[in-house]
Design a protein around this nucleic acid. Sequence first.
DNA 1: TATGAATGAGGATTCATTCAT
DNA 2: AATGAATGAATCCTCATTCAT
Lengths: 198, 198, 198, 198
Amino acid sequence: MTSGLAEKRREKYEAILKAALKVFAEHGFFNSQVSKIAREAGVADGTIYLYFKNKEDILISLFREKLGSLVRKFHEHVHDDDRADEAIRKVCELHFTELEKDVQLAKVTQLELRQSSRELHSEISNALKPYIQLIEDVLVRGIEQGIFRSDLDVKLTRLLIFGAMDEVVSSWLISGRRYSLSAQVDKTVDFFLRSLRA
Amino acid sequence: MTSGLAEKRREKYEAILKAALKVFAEHGFFNSQVSKIAREAGVADGTIYLYFKNKEDILISLFREKLGSLVRKFHEHVHDDDRADEAIRKVCELHFTELEKDVQLAKVTQLELRQSSRELHSEISNALKPYIQLIEDVLVRGIEQGIFRSDLDVKLTRLLIFGAMDEVVSSWLISGRRYSLSAQVDKTVDFFLRSLRA
Amino acid sequence: MTSGLAEKRREKYEAILKAALKVFAEHGFFNSQVSKIAREAGVADGTIYLYFKNKEDILISLFREKLGSLVRKFHEHVHDDDRADEAIRKVCELHFTELEKDVQLAKVTQLELRQSSRELHSEISNALKPYIQLIEDVLVRGIEQGIFRSDLDVKLTRLLIFGAMDEVVSSWLISGRRYSLSAQVDKTVDFFLRSLRA
Amino acid sequence: MTSGLAEKRREKYEAILKAALKVFAEHGFFNSQVSKIAREAGVADGTIYLYFKNKEDILISLFREKLGSLVRKFHEHVHDDDRADEAIRKVCELHFTELEKDVQLAKVTQLELRQSSRELHSEISNALKPYIQLIEDVLVRGIEQGIFRSDLDVKLTRLLIFGAMDEVVSSWLISGRRYSLSAQVDKTVDFFLRSLRA
DNA sequence: TATGAATGAGGATTCATTCAT
DNA sequence: AATGAATGAATCCTCATTCAT
């Protein structure tokens, strides 16, 4: 029953990631001890190193898994023949609602992820790429559909859109989540579409 | 001659900040030792603590000084009776050209500043407030001038604008500055104004 | 078929020792992980502990086996009625040629063996005793045969002889084996015999 | 008063070395914690690293200082125009009496010094070189004086002599110092001179 | 004011050994 | 007998900060 073993391994892997998410969100990356994560996950300190190369690797893996899941969710809800303006709305909606649902994840991605070492930055930006690319794909499709301006610089625009959403989330977190994040979707998307439309 | 003393004090204060900017930009906040900053500034380790409370205080002070100077520069170039759309252009232009001119500052604000502790974040967002407020003021003025839509949510929009610019700078840095940052001003401002205009 | 089982056990025991010899010679005792020896021997980590008490026990066993084999070889080549001066030559010849043939063994005995813990030292000197004793026996026989001085302090002299040979081997190893070790036999034995002869 | 500062520094340096000698002799290199040395020396753990690069550096420095002092002592007692056979006696006498007087040093040099890492070995053999060279110089002088055989291989012979003495000291230590080490000088030197004499 | 030697808390990681399977 | 995943004790070193001078 190899699947039993692999499954068990996967379970422990995810237990550690879950514990890490909680600890990182609560204390920040640099103030989180590996031993604290181990305790939270109910494993020995050394066990962590059977699943992850080092402390940074935990953060990267966490980020990859979560971002991958976000991209996957997007693909579940949006199809290639959907209207690009609806797709933009869906991206923003998922971005805001998913992070609103999972505050720990929001904290880690917005605040703690930046607290990493120099080398980590390229890893992180690699992990972000599929998401940024996804936004670009929607922009390109919008132009093809004749919905978006054909003179758009898609490489620049994808950054403007991602950066704008990112800042809204950060600000919401820093404010202590005193208002609804998902309530910002409409106005945010409106802002984007006014600029994008042909 | 207290002013002589005060002047001397100010000089050393600035020498330390200048050294810190260089060291932080080169090695990142967490990989910068106070002793390295002291050596770069030509003072003893202990002297640092006569001017700053602790290591974080150096970063905050650096940020405040630099951001204050950026805000000051804006006020030099833009006046209350200027057209709001021109003011938005001026904000973006200054944002991009100032950071393009001072790469060390760009690195510190975009990358290293985020590597700070939990407590630091509120300090940083405090230091950012005057700049964000400045953007908001322009938006309000634009509405009053009838140039911008009156249904704008200025609190949200200022974030969208700041976040978008911020991301363009980050991306430019991460790319290794392989293209001109200031060359992005026109398209970026165009993106903003299409959404803002009445 | 206990002998079949015992044989299999012996085979695995020797496979582990052979692997340990290679790993110890290459990385030194303290830089050799038990898991590395296990991998080299093609067994699981835990299996090591079915054959050896602990890591040190591997080293001691290795030493005993190898030294025992050296003593056995000596007895194959020298007989009680041989001339003692010829026996001294044989001892030195075997000492140098055997270690020259088996560099891994030389490295372990000369360099890594010393890197052991306090408690190990008595074990090691126990394992060395048969060899030192063998030298003493030759000396006693030489006196009886009238070939060696009767005023020799055999307890001291056996140390002088062993220590001298030991140092030649160590120096040869440290030099990177840039010359022939066995070529030193004649001059070394000459040095000994000038002092020993009646 | 720079000499005051330098003196103070030297004093602390020696206090740490003295503490290290005691701790290493008692527990062996690998079982000696840096913190134990610090406590013994009456300084903070971190202070150690103001004087030494790392733990190994303490051992190397200790070795160098002590061996240097032994070489210096030899030069105080022997002069270039002394008879080479007397010089050999002096070498052996100093070797045995100095280590007999300073058992901690004997333990460290004979037993613990070998327990070092691969890289350390070349450092150690470098530190030993002046002493080995000193023996060679005496041999060369003996040949020039016509006292020693002119067909001596001085490079080999210096090893035989050093190795023989070294082993006597090791054996004495392992025996628990149950006999006088310096009492072995006469017979040891006699063994050497019988081989060396023209 | 300025110095810089001294402090000492703090933590990621390794690896010999165990034990459930 | 054999496995190898899990354990968790153990420690060197860094570096922000202090304080005697």
